[in-house]
Amino acid sequence: MSTQATTAATAAAGVRSKARKKKRISGSSITIMVFLTMCAAFVSVPLYVVIVTSFKTMDQIALGDVFALPTTWTIEPWITAWSEVCAGMTCEGVSHGFWTSMKILFPSLILSIGVSSVTGYALALWKIRWAGTFLFVLFLCAFVPFQIIMIPLVVLNSSIGLFGSIWAVAIVHSILAMPLLTLIFRNFYKDVPEEIVNAAIMDCGSFWRIFIEIILPMSANIMIVVLILMITTVWNDYLIGLTFGGVGTQPMTVILANTVITSFGAVKYNVDMAAALLTAIPPLVVYFALGKFFVQGITAGAIKG
């Protein structure tokens, strides 16, 4: 009995000391809190300024208090930014750029994901001669900076008559993304249990049927990861759009930049801010819609049974 009582007492004491420990805020955790708050402020304060400015009238902006809330809320700058603002000589708003970006985005997605998923599947699950060498070359390609091959690519594009079209931008996007995407797909498919592939090979020898009926339905997680990666890269890209897009085929980011540097008289900060926010909305929507799956997709590879 007495021993039991003592153990109970020590256990209770243990709990109490643990609880006490939890309440105390140590110096290091204060440092971390301050650091994290600074990090958060670093992003959120400018964002706050951008958002409030886009709803202000030019009269209020002229007063110069950037942190103040709008005295009169107006959506006028948003409408102007979407449909009226001038980018260089054309005054169609950023909406034109939005549609161009969409037209670039979809072919790039289909082309890059289509080709790289099939290549990754072939490399991971079929006996391919020189597969190792090919992977190594892909690995090297994934690390070549775009700027190095930009001029040869422009020459190549113009020689086949694509330069300046939407397709030029889309194809360059797809090709540049392929090495990395192929590696991602290949690594994902390498984890597909060998016996499932063997069973499929015995049931049906067809490369395409196995891919479409068995492998592709198992790829939802990695598809979402790759989709988010590609949508944000393609949408946020500026350099490829600027160099390969011609007049009227430049993506939203380029239009935005042109809008901001084009001014007649006073700089319309509210319109510029609204245009910037409009450009940033699509990737945000993608993140919010698919973010949950994105995390699942990243961890799925780690604990797949």
């Binding site: 249990p193 016996e195 499932i196 063997n198 069973a199 499929a200 090979i201 015995m202 049931d203 049906c204 020898g205 009926e213 068995i214 339905p217 198992m218």
Partner: peptide, 29 residues
Amino acid sequence: DPKDRGLAMVFQSYALYPTKTVRGNLKFG
């Protein structure tokens, strides 16, 4: 090719197609 040998195999880990129903698994081959 494996499919042309007139064989059927049962694997240690069952190797069922995870995205197909039981019926789909039976029908695939």
